[in-house]
Design a protein around this nucleic acid. Sequence first.
RNA 1: GGAGAGAUGCCCGAGAGGCUAAAGGGGGCGGACUGUAAAUCCGCUGGCGUACGCCUACGUUGGUUCGAAUCCAACUCUCUCCA
Length: 420
Amino acid sequence: MTESPLQSPFLIEATARGFVFQCTDLAALDAAMQAGPVTGYIGFDPTADSLHVGSALQIMLLRLMQKHGHRPIALMGGGTAKIGDPSFRDDARSLMTDEMIAHNLRGIEASLRQFITFGDGPSDAVLANNGDWLDKLSYIDLLREVGVHFSVSRMLSFDSVRQRLDREQGLTFLEFNYCILQSFDFRELNRRYGARLQMGGSDQWGNIVSGIDLVRRTDQTQVFGLTAPLLTTSSGAKMGKSAKGAVWLSAGKLPVFEYWQFWRNTEDADVGRFLKLFTDLPVEECDRLAALEGASINEAKKVLATEATALCHGREAAEEAAETARRTFEQGATIAAALPSRDFPATELAEGAPMFRLLVAAGLAGSNGEARRLVRGGGARLNDVVVSDENRVVTEADLVDGALKLSSGKKHHVLLRPGA
RNA sequence: GGAGAGAUGCCCGAGAGGCUAAAGGGGGCGGACUGUAAAUCCGCUGGCGUACGCCUACGUUGGUUCGAAUCCAACUCUCUCCA
Protein backbone atom coordinates (compact mmCIF):
# COMPACT_ATOMS: atom_id res chain seq x y z
CA MET A 1 0.00 0.00 0.00
CA THR A 2 1.31 3.37 -0.90
CA GLU A 3 1.30 6.19 1.58
CA SER A 4 -0.99 8.39 -0.41
CA PRO A 5 -2.32 10.90 2.06
CA LEU A 6 -6.01 10.56 2.67
CA GLN A 7 -8.35 13.47 2.27
CA SER A 8 -11.71 12.41 3.60
CA PRO A 9 -12.20 12.93 7.32
CA PHE A 10 -13.89 9.59 7.72
CA LEU A 11 -11.04 7.58 6.26
CA ILE A 12 -8.46 9.65 8.05
CA GLU A 13 -10.07 9.00 11.38
CA ALA A 14 -10.92 5.37 10.65
CA THR A 15 -7.32 4.73 9.77
CA ALA A 16 -5.98 6.58 12.77
CA ARG A 17 -8.21 4.63 15.08
CA GLY A 18 -7.23 1.28 13.65
CA PHE A 19 -10.40 0.32 11.87
CA VAL A 20 -8.87 -0.25 8.48
CA PHE A 21 -7.37 -3.56 7.56
CA GLN A 22 -7.87 -3.77 3.82
CA CYS A 23 -9.60 -1.68 1.22
CA THR A 24 -10.37 -2.51 -2.37
CA ASP A 25 -9.48 0.91 -3.66
CA LEU A 26 -8.54 3.32 -0.95
CA ALA A 27 -7.74 6.24 -3.20
CA ALA A 28 -10.98 6.03 -5.16
CA LEU A 29 -13.02 5.57 -2.02
CA ASP A 30 -11.29 8.53 -0.49
CA ALA A 31 -12.17 10.63 -3.50
CA ALA A 32 -15.78 9.49 -3.40
CA MET A 33 -16.06 10.38 0.24
CA GLN A 34 -14.56 13.74 -0.43
CA ALA A 35 -17.08 14.38 -3.17
CA GLY A 36 -20.08 13.80 -0.95
CA PRO A 37 -21.87 11.54 1.46
CA VAL A 38 -21.37 7.85 0.82
CA THR A 39 -23.79 5.18 1.88
CA GLY A 40 -22.10 2.14 3.38
CA TYR A 41 -23.33 -0.95 5.11
CA ILE A 42 -22.40 -3.82 7.35
CA GLY A 43 -24.32 -7.03 7.76
CA PHE A 44 -25.36 -8.56 11.05
CA ASP A 45 -26.63 -12.07 11.58
CA PRO A 46 -29.69 -12.36 13.78
CA THR A 47 -28.62 -15.64 15.31
CA ALA A 48 -29.35 -14.40 18.82
CA ASP A 49 -31.56 -11.73 20.25
CA SER A 50 -28.59 -9.57 21.06
CA LEU A 51 -25.28 -8.74 19.48
CA HIS A 52 -22.10 -9.18 21.46
CA VAL A 53 -18.89 -7.21 21.66
CA GLY A 54 -17.55 -9.04 18.65
CA SER A 55 -19.96 -6.90 16.65
CA ALA A 56 -19.19 -3.73 18.54
CA LEU A 57 -16.31 -2.97 16.25
CA GLN A 58 -18.55 -3.00 13.19
CA ILE A 59 -21.11 -0.87 14.95
CA MET A 60 -18.48 1.66 15.84
CA LEU A 61 -17.52 1.79 12.21
CA LEU A 62 -21.08 2.63 11.25
CA ARG A 63 -21.13 5.20 14.00
CA LEU A 64 -17.99 6.78 12.68
CA MET A 65 -19.49 7.02 9.21
CA GLN A 66 -22.45 8.81 10.60
CA LYS A 67 -20.26 11.16 12.53
CA HIS A 68 -18.65 12.28 9.31
CA GLY A 69 -21.89 12.82 7.48
CA HIS A 70 -22.09 9.57 5.58
CA ARG A 71 -25.06 7.27 5.69
CA PRO A 72 -24.73 3.91 7.43
CA ILE A 73 -26.95 0.96 6.76
CA ALA A 74 -27.24 -1.88 9.21
CA LEU A 75 -28.24 -4.90 7.20
CA MET A 76 -29.93 -7.63 9.15
CA GLY A 77 -29.51 -11.09 7.74
CA GLY A 78 -33.12 -12.03 8.27
CA GLY A 79 -33.17 -13.94 5.01
CA THR A 80 -29.84 -15.69 5.28
CA ALA A 81 -30.55 -16.65 8.86
CA LYS A 82 -33.30 -18.87 7.62
CA ILE A 83 -30.89 -21.32 6.12
CA GLY A 84 -29.10 -21.49 9.39
CA ASP A 85 -25.43 -21.31 9.91
CA PRO A 86 -24.05 -24.42 8.28
CA SER A 87 -20.86 -24.37 10.29
CA PHE A 88 -22.81 -25.69 13.23
CA ARG A 89 -23.48 -29.25 12.33
CA ASP A 90 -25.34 -31.80 14.42
CA ASP A 91 -27.60 -28.99 15.41
CA ALA A 92 -31.14 -29.79 14.40
CA ARG A 93 -32.54 -26.47 15.51
CA SER A 94 -30.21 -24.41 13.42
CA LEU A 95 -33.13 -23.70 11.16
CA MET A 96 -34.65 -20.61 12.59
CA THR A 97 -38.31 -19.85 12.40
CA ASP A 98 -39.69 -16.53 11.27
CA GLU A 99 -40.77 -15.73 14.80
CA MET A 100 -37.34 -16.37 16.23
CA ILE A 101 -35.74 -14.20 13.60
CA ALA A 102 -38.24 -11.43 14.12
CA HIS A 103 -37.65 -11.57 17.84
CA ASN A 104 -33.90 -11.46 17.38
CA LEU A 105 -34.13 -8.57 14.98
CA ARG A 106 -35.99 -6.51 17.56
CA GLY A 107 -33.38 -7.20 20.20
CA ILE A 108 -30.51 -6.31 17.95
CA GLU A 109 -32.19 -3.20 16.68
CA ALA A 110 -32.48 -1.93 20.23
CA SER A 111 -28.73 -2.21 20.68
CA LEU A 112 -27.98 -0.57 17.38
CA ARG A 113 -30.13 2.39 18.30
CA GLN A 114 -27.83 3.08 21.21
CA PHE A 115 -24.94 3.63 18.86
CA ILE A 116 -26.40 5.14 15.75
CA THR A 117 -29.29 7.37 14.84
CA PHE A 118 -31.91 6.00 12.51
CA GLY A 119 -34.31 8.10 10.54
CA ASP A 120 -34.93 9.77 7.21
CA GLY A 121 -32.32 12.48 7.27
CA PRO A 122 -29.39 12.46 4.85
CA SER A 123 -27.00 10.86 7.28
CA ASP A 124 -29.57 9.03 9.35
CA ALA A 125 -28.99 5.34 9.45
CA VAL A 126 -31.14 2.81 7.68
CA LEU A 127 -32.10 -0.55 9.03
CA ALA A 128 -32.52 -3.04 6.23
CA ASN A 129 -33.39 -6.69 6.24
CA ASN A 130 -32.26 -8.93 3.43
CA GLY A 131 -35.27 -11.09 4.07
CA ASP A 132 -37.18 -8.40 2.20
CA TRP A 133 -35.62 -9.47 -1.07
CA LEU A 134 -34.09 -12.87 -0.45
CA ASP A 135 -37.33 -14.43 0.72
CA LYS A 136 -39.04 -14.05 -2.58
CA LEU A 137 -36.09 -14.84 -4.73
CA SER A 138 -36.65 -17.45 -7.39
CA TYR A 139 -33.93 -20.00 -7.70
CA ILE A 140 -34.00 -20.15 -11.47
CA ASP A 141 -33.95 -16.41 -11.80
CA LEU A 142 -31.06 -16.18 -9.40
CA LEU A 143 -29.08 -18.73 -11.35
CA ARG A 144 -29.71 -17.05 -14.68
CA GLU A 145 -29.21 -13.56 -13.55
CA VAL A 146 -26.53 -13.81 -10.90
CA GLY A 147 -25.13 -17.31 -11.09
CA VAL A 148 -23.54 -16.73 -14.47
CA HIS A 149 -21.27 -14.13 -12.98
CA PHE A 150 -19.74 -16.40 -10.42
CA SER A 151 -16.74 -18.56 -11.13
CA VAL A 152 -16.55 -21.67 -9.07
CA SER A 153 -12.82 -21.99 -9.47
CA ARG A 154 -12.50 -18.46 -8.19
CA MET A 155 -14.58 -19.19 -5.16
CA LEU A 156 -12.54 -22.28 -4.51
CA SER A 157 -9.49 -20.12 -4.28
CA PHE A 158 -10.85 -18.06 -1.40
CA ASP A 159 -9.04 -18.61 1.83
CA SER A 160 -12.21 -19.24 3.74
CA VAL A 161 -13.19 -22.00 1.36
CA ARG A 162 -9.73 -23.39 0.95
CA GLN A 163 -9.12 -23.76 4.63
CA ARG A 164 -12.28 -25.70 5.05
CA LEU A 165 -11.38 -28.07 2.27
CA ASP A 166 -7.81 -28.45 3.45
CA ARG A 167 -8.98 -29.36 6.87
CA GLU A 168 -11.21 -31.96 5.33
CA GLN A 169 -14.20 -30.42 6.95
CA GLY A 170 -16.23 -30.41 3.84
CA LEU A 171 -18.42 -27.66 2.67
CA THR A 172 -22.05 -27.93 1.79
CA PHE A 173 -23.52 -26.34 -1.27
CA LEU A 174 -25.63 -24.27 1.04
CA GLU A 175 -22.63 -22.79 2.72
CA PHE A 176 -20.98 -22.25 -0.60
CA ASN A 177 -23.89 -20.01 -1.53
CA TYR A 178 -23.40 -17.52 1.23
CA CYS A 179 -21.02 -15.68 -0.96
CA ILE A 180 -23.57 -15.38 -3.72
CA LEU A 181 -26.35 -14.23 -1.46
CA GLN A 182 -24.13 -11.70 0.19
CA SER A 183 -23.08 -10.37 -3.17
CA PHE A 184 -26.70 -10.13 -4.12
CA ASP A 185 -27.32 -8.11 -0.98
CA PHE A 186 -24.68 -5.62 -1.95
CA ARG A 187 -26.19 -5.10 -5.37
CA GLU A 188 -29.65 -4.80 -3.90
CA LEU A 189 -28.53 -2.22 -1.38
CA ASN A 190 -26.77 -0.36 -4.11
CA ARG A 191 -29.90 -0.29 -6.22
CA ARG A 192 -32.25 0.55 -3.38
CA TYR A 193 -30.16 2.92 -1.32
CA GLY A 194 -27.21 3.71 -3.47
CA ALA A 195 -24.89 1.90 -1.11
CA ARG A 196 -21.38 2.09 -2.45
CA LEU A 197 -19.42 0.61 0.40
CA GLN A 198 -19.54 -2.65 2.25
CA MET A 199 -17.57 -3.05 5.41
CA GLY A 200 -16.98 -6.03 7.60
CA GLY A 201 -14.44 -8.12 9.42
CA SER A 202 -11.39 -9.22 7.51
CA ASP A 203 -12.87 -12.70 7.25
CA GLN A 204 -15.49 -11.18 4.98
CA TRP A 205 -13.01 -10.03 2.38
CA GLY A 206 -13.80 -12.71 -0.16
CA ASN A 207 -17.53 -12.19 0.09
CA ILE A 208 -17.19 -8.45 -0.15
CA VAL A 209 -14.98 -8.58 -3.21
CA SER A 210 -17.43 -10.93 -4.87
CA GLY A 211 -20.19 -8.46 -4.29
CA ILE A 212 -18.16 -5.68 -5.80
CA ASP A 213 -17.53 -7.77 -8.88
CA LEU A 214 -21.18 -8.56 -9.25
CA VAL A 215 -22.22 -4.95 -9.06
CA ARG A 216 -19.60 -3.96 -11.58
CA ARG A 217 -20.58 -6.66 -14.03
CA THR A 218 -24.31 -6.30 -13.93
CA ASP A 219 -24.72 -2.62 -13.15
CA GLN A 220 -21.42 -1.15 -14.34
CA THR A 221 -21.07 0.63 -11.05
CA GLN A 222 -17.94 0.94 -8.97
CA VAL A 223 -18.46 0.08 -5.35
CA PHE A 224 -16.00 -0.41 -2.53
CA GLY A 225 -15.04 -2.77 0.21
CA LEU A 226 -13.33 -2.04 3.47
CA THR A 227 -12.46 -4.57 6.13
CA ALA A 228 -11.58 -4.15 9.75
CA PRO A 229 -8.99 -6.25 11.50
CA LEU A 230 -10.19 -9.36 13.23
CA LEU A 231 -10.05 -8.56 16.88
CA THR A 232 -8.12 -10.61 19.31
CA THR A 233 -6.64 -9.66 22.62
CA SER A 234 -2.91 -9.29 22.84
CA SER A 235 -2.63 -12.70 24.39
CA GLY A 236 -4.37 -14.15 21.38
CA ALA A 237 -7.80 -14.87 22.72
CA LYS A 238 -10.86 -14.09 20.68
CA MET A 239 -12.72 -11.00 21.69
CA GLY A 240 -16.15 -11.28 23.07
CA LYS A 241 -15.83 -14.15 25.41
CA SER A 242 -15.67 -13.58 29.10
CA ALA A 243 -15.98 -15.67 32.19
CA LYS A 244 -19.69 -16.06 31.86
CA GLY A 245 -19.68 -16.59 28.13
CA ALA A 246 -20.50 -14.09 25.46
CA VAL A 247 -20.34 -10.41 26.29
CA TRP A 248 -23.76 -9.29 25.17
CA LEU A 249 -24.65 -5.76 24.30
CA SER A 250 -28.16 -5.90 25.64
CA ALA A 251 -28.58 -5.21 29.33
CA GLY A 252 -31.17 -7.94 29.51
CA LYS A 253 -28.58 -10.56 28.67
CA LEU A 254 -25.63 -9.09 30.49
CA PRO A 255 -25.93 -6.65 33.39
CA VAL A 256 -24.39 -3.27 32.74
CA PHE A 257 -22.03 -3.81 35.63
CA GLU A 258 -20.66 -6.96 33.99
CA TYR A 259 -20.26 -5.10 30.72
CA TRP A 260 -18.30 -2.41 32.46
CA GLN A 261 -16.20 -5.04 34.17
CA PHE A 262 -15.43 -6.66 30.86
CA TRP A 263 -13.75 -3.50 29.64
CA ARG A 264 -12.20 -2.80 33.00
CA ASN A 265 -10.36 -6.11 32.79
CA THR A 266 -8.77 -5.38 29.44
CA GLU A 267 -5.18 -6.49 29.13
CA ASP A 268 -2.64 -3.69 29.48
CA ALA A 269 -1.41 -4.07 25.96
CA ASP A 270 -4.86 -3.63 24.50
CA VAL A 271 -5.93 -0.48 26.28
CA GLY A 272 -4.83 2.00 23.66
CA ARG A 273 -6.19 0.01 20.79
CA PHE A 274 -9.53 -0.51 22.47
CA LEU A 275 -9.86 3.12 23.50
CA LYS A 276 -9.53 4.12 19.88
CA LEU A 277 -11.91 1.51 18.61
CA PHE A 278 -14.57 1.51 21.26
CA THR A 279 -14.78 5.03 22.58
CA ASP A 280 -15.25 8.48 21.10
CA LEU A 281 -12.26 9.96 22.88
CA PRO A 282 -9.82 11.83 20.65
CA VAL A 283 -6.93 9.76 19.40
CA GLU A 284 -4.37 11.85 21.30
CA GLU A 285 -6.24 11.28 24.52
CA CYS A 286 -6.31 7.53 23.84
CA ASP A 287 -2.59 7.55 23.27
CA ARG A 288 -1.98 9.51 26.41
CA LEU A 289 -4.03 7.12 28.52
CA ALA A 290 -2.45 4.08 26.96
CA ALA A 291 1.00 5.39 27.75
CA LEU A 292 0.37 5.18 31.47
CA GLU A 293 2.63 2.62 33.04
CA GLY A 294 2.34 0.07 35.74
CA ALA A 295 -0.59 0.29 38.06
CA SER A 296 -1.60 3.70 36.83
CA ILE A 297 -2.83 2.21 33.59
CA ASN A 298 -5.76 1.09 35.68
CA GLU A 299 -7.00 4.64 35.41
CA ALA A 300 -7.02 4.27 31.65
CA LYS A 301 -8.96 1.05 31.96
CA LYS A 302 -11.60 2.74 34.05
CA VAL A 303 -11.96 5.44 31.44
CA LEU A 304 -12.22 2.81 28.75
CA ALA A 305 -14.84 0.92 30.71
CA THR A 306 -16.98 3.93 31.44
CA GLU A 307 -16.76 5.40 27.97
CA ALA A 308 -17.45 2.14 26.19
CA THR A 309 -20.31 1.36 28.53
CA ALA A 310 -21.77 4.81 28.09
CA LEU A 311 -22.04 4.26 24.36
CA CYS A 312 -23.87 1.02 24.80
CA HIS A 313 -26.01 1.62 27.87
CA GLY A 314 -26.04 5.35 28.36
CA ARG A 315 -23.90 7.63 30.44
CA GLU A 316 -25.89 7.33 33.61
CA ALA A 317 -25.81 3.55 33.72
CA ALA A 318 -22.11 3.62 32.98
CA GLU A 319 -21.35 5.97 35.83
CA GLU A 320 -23.41 3.84 38.10
CA ALA A 321 -21.45 0.76 37.14
CA ALA A 322 -18.21 2.62 37.70
CA GLU A 323 -19.36 3.65 41.14
CA THR A 324 -20.44 0.15 42.03
CA ALA A 325 -17.06 -1.14 40.99
CA ARG A 326 -15.29 1.53 42.94
CA ARG A 327 -17.10 0.68 46.12
CA THR A 328 -16.79 -3.02 45.63
CA PHE A 329 -13.15 -3.20 44.70
CA GLU A 330 -11.60 -0.10 46.15
CA GLN A 331 -13.49 0.30 49.39
CA GLY A 332 -13.19 -3.23 50.55
CA ALA A 333 -16.70 -4.01 49.50
CA THR A 334 -19.40 -3.27 51.88
CA ILE A 335 -22.75 -4.30 50.57
CA ALA A 336 -23.39 -2.20 47.53
CA ALA A 337 -26.98 -1.90 46.50
CA ALA A 338 -26.08 -2.18 42.85
CA LEU A 339 -24.60 -5.65 43.07
CA PRO A 340 -26.70 -8.24 41.35
CA SER A 341 -29.16 -9.68 43.77
CA ARG A 342 -31.36 -12.73 43.92
CA ASP A 343 -34.27 -13.75 46.04
CA PHE A 344 -34.15 -16.76 48.24
CA PRO A 345 -36.97 -18.47 50.15
CA ALA A 346 -36.96 -17.01 53.63
CA THR A 347 -38.21 -20.23 55.11
CA GLU A 348 -35.05 -22.09 54.15
CA LEU A 349 -33.01 -19.52 55.93
CA ALA A 350 -35.15 -19.80 59.02
CA GLU A 351 -34.34 -23.48 59.17
CA GLY A 352 -30.73 -22.92 58.33
CA ALA A 353 -29.34 -23.67 54.88
CA PRO A 354 -25.93 -25.14 54.08
CA MET A 355 -23.44 -22.86 52.38
CA PHE A 356 -23.19 -24.89 49.20
CA ARG A 357 -26.90 -24.61 48.64
CA LEU A 358 -26.82 -20.87 48.94
CA LEU A 359 -24.05 -20.63 46.38
CA VAL A 360 -26.23 -22.49 43.94
CA ALA A 361 -29.23 -20.33 44.77
CA ALA A 362 -27.08 -17.28 44.14
CA GLY A 363 -26.11 -18.60 40.74
CA LEU A 364 -22.45 -18.64 41.66
CA ALA A 365 -22.27 -22.38 41.15
CA GLY A 366 -24.07 -24.48 38.60
CA SER A 367 -24.58 -27.50 40.80
CA ASN A 368 -24.19 -28.60 44.37
CA GLY A 369 -21.00 -30.39 43.46
CA GLU A 370 -19.58 -27.31 41.86
CA ALA A 371 -20.49 -25.28 44.91
CA ARG A 372 -18.75 -27.77 47.15
CA ARG A 373 -15.65 -27.66 45.05
CA LEU A 374 -15.69 -23.91 45.14
CA VAL A 375 -15.72 -23.99 48.94
CA ARG A 376 -13.04 -26.64 49.11
CA GLY A 377 -10.89 -24.58 46.81
CA GLY A 378 -11.13 -21.68 49.20
CA GLY A 379 -12.94 -19.42 46.80
CA ALA A 380 -16.27 -19.01 48.54
CA ARG A 381 -17.07 -16.23 50.94
CA LEU A 382 -20.05 -15.20 52.98
CA ASN A 383 -20.20 -11.53 53.86
CA ASP A 384 -16.56 -11.24 52.83
CA VAL A 385 -15.40 -13.99 55.14
CA VAL A 386 -13.97 -17.12 53.62
CA VAL A 387 -16.09 -20.15 54.32
CA SER A 388 -14.14 -23.37 54.51
CA ASP A 389 -16.90 -25.74 55.48
CA GLU A 390 -19.20 -26.47 52.59
CA ASN A 391 -21.93 -27.53 54.98
CA ARG A 392 -21.66 -24.45 57.11
CA VAL A 393 -25.19 -23.69 58.16
CA VAL A 394 -26.34 -20.21 57.33
CA THR A 395 -29.24 -18.69 59.22
CA GLU A 396 -31.01 -15.39 59.65
CA ALA A 397 -28.32 -14.48 62.11
CA ASP A 398 -25.95 -14.08 59.18
CA LEU A 399 -28.02 -11.43 57.48
CA VAL A 400 -26.32 -8.10 57.07
CA ASP A 401 -28.67 -5.27 56.25
CA GLY A 402 -31.27 -7.84 55.36
CA ALA A 403 -29.16 -9.71 52.84
CA LEU A 404 -26.38 -12.21 52.49
CA LYS A 405 -23.38 -11.30 50.41
CA LEU A 406 -22.02 -14.35 48.68
CA SER A 407 -18.83 -14.32 46.69
CA SER A 408 -17.09 -16.64 44.30
CA GLY A 409 -13.55 -15.51 44.08
CA LYS A 410 -12.79 -11.84 44.19
CA LYS A 411 -14.89 -10.66 41.34
CA HIS A 412 -18.21 -12.36 41.53
CA HIS A 413 -20.57 -11.17 44.19
CA VAL A 414 -24.26 -11.69 44.61
CA LEU A 415 -26.63 -10.42 47.21
CA LEU A 416 -29.08 -13.02 48.36
CA ARG A 417 -32.25 -11.58 49.80
CA PRO A 418 -34.72 -13.65 51.71
CA GLY A 419 -38.07 -13.32 50.00
CA ALA A 420 -41.00 -15.34 48.82
C1' G B 1 -24.56 -45.84 -6.96
C1' G B 2 -19.36 -48.11 -5.59
C1' A B 3 -14.84 -48.26 -2.30
C1' G B 4 -12.66 -46.60 2.14
C1' A B 5 -12.33 -43.60 6.86
C1' G B 6 -14.76 -41.82 11.02
C1' A B 7 -18.57 -40.38 15.20
C1' U B 8 -15.42 -40.09 22.66
C1' G B 9 -16.83 -35.36 28.09
C1' C B 10 -17.60 -27.61 26.79
C1' C B 11 -13.81 -28.10 22.44
C1' C B 12 -9.57 -30.85 20.37
C1' G B 13 -7.85 -35.61 21.05
C1' A B 14 -5.96 -40.66 23.30
C1' G B 15 -8.07 -45.27 24.56
C1' A B 16 -9.05 -51.14 21.38
C1' G B 17 -12.98 -56.36 26.80
C1' G B 18 -12.32 -55.50 33.41
C1' C B 19 -7.39 -51.24 36.98
C1' U B 20 -12.05 -46.01 32.62
C1' A B 21 -16.10 -40.81 35.04
C1' A B 22 -12.51 -42.27 30.62
C1' A B 23 -4.76 -40.08 29.31
C1' G B 24 -3.12 -35.34 27.30
C1' G B 25 -4.08 -30.43 25.67
C1' G B 26 -7.35 -26.17 25.28
C1' G B 27 -11.12 -23.63 27.65
C1' G B 28 -13.53 -22.61 32.29
C1' C B 29 -13.55 -21.98 37.74
C1' G B 30 -10.75 -21.27 42.26
C1' G B 31 -5.94 -20.19 44.78
C1' A B 32 -0.81 -17.84 44.98
C1' C B 33 1.85 -13.60 42.92
C1' U B 34 0.07 -8.56 41.42
C1' G B 35 -2.45 -3.59 39.63
C1' U B 36 -9.95 -6.14 39.45
C1' A B 37 -4.06 -6.81 33.89
C1' A B 38 -0.71 -10.18 31.35
C1' A B 39 2.80 -14.06 32.12
C1' U B 40 3.91 -17.87 35.63
C1' C B 41 2.89 -21.60 39.37
C1' C B 42 -0.80 -24.73 42.17
C1' G B 43 -5.73 -27.07 42.75
C1' C B 44 -10.50 -28.32 40.69
C1' U B 45 -13.35 -29.35 36.32
C1' G B 46 -20.64 -35.14 34.79
C1' G B 47 -25.05 -35.28 38.44
C1' C B 48 -27.09 -36.64 43.39
C1' G B 49 -25.68 -37.74 48.56
C1' U B 50 -21.82 -35.83 54.68
C1' A B 51 -19.96 -40.57 53.17
C1' C B 52 -18.57 -46.73 51.90
C1' G B 53 -22.37 -45.35 47.49
C1' C B 54 -25.93 -44.55 43.53
C1' C B 55 -27.20 -42.55 38.66
C1' U B 56 -25.98 -40.66 33.80
C1' A B 57 -22.07 -40.58 29.81
C1' C B 58 -17.99 -42.65 24.67
C1' G B 59 -23.54 -41.32 17.35
C1' U B 60 -28.66 -44.58 17.74
C1' U B 61 -30.84 -49.37 18.66
C1' G B 62 -30.25 -54.23 19.66
C1' G B 63 -26.79 -58.45 20.61
C1' U B 64 -22.29 -61.44 22.51
C1' U B 65 -20.04 -61.65 27.45
C1' C B 66 -19.80 -62.54 34.62
C1' G B 67 -18.16 -57.71 32.57
C1' A B 68 -18.23 -53.37 26.59
C1' A B 69 -16.21 -46.65 24.89
C1' U B 70 -13.62 -51.09 23.49
C1' C B 71 -16.35 -57.34 20.11
C1' C B 72 -20.88 -58.31 16.60
C1' A B 73 -25.35 -56.52 13.72
C1' A B 74 -28.48 -52.95 11.84
C1' C B 75 -29.37 -47.91 11.48
C1' U B 76 -28.18 -42.48 11.39
C1' C B 77 -24.81 -38.73 10.26
C1' U B 78 -19.90 -36.84 8.56
C1' C B 79 -15.57 -36.98 5.50
C1' U B 80 -12.32 -38.85 1.33
C1' C B 81 -11.78 -41.13 -3.39
C1' C B 82 -14.27 -43.32 -7.74
C1' A B 83 -18.72 -43.23 -11.09
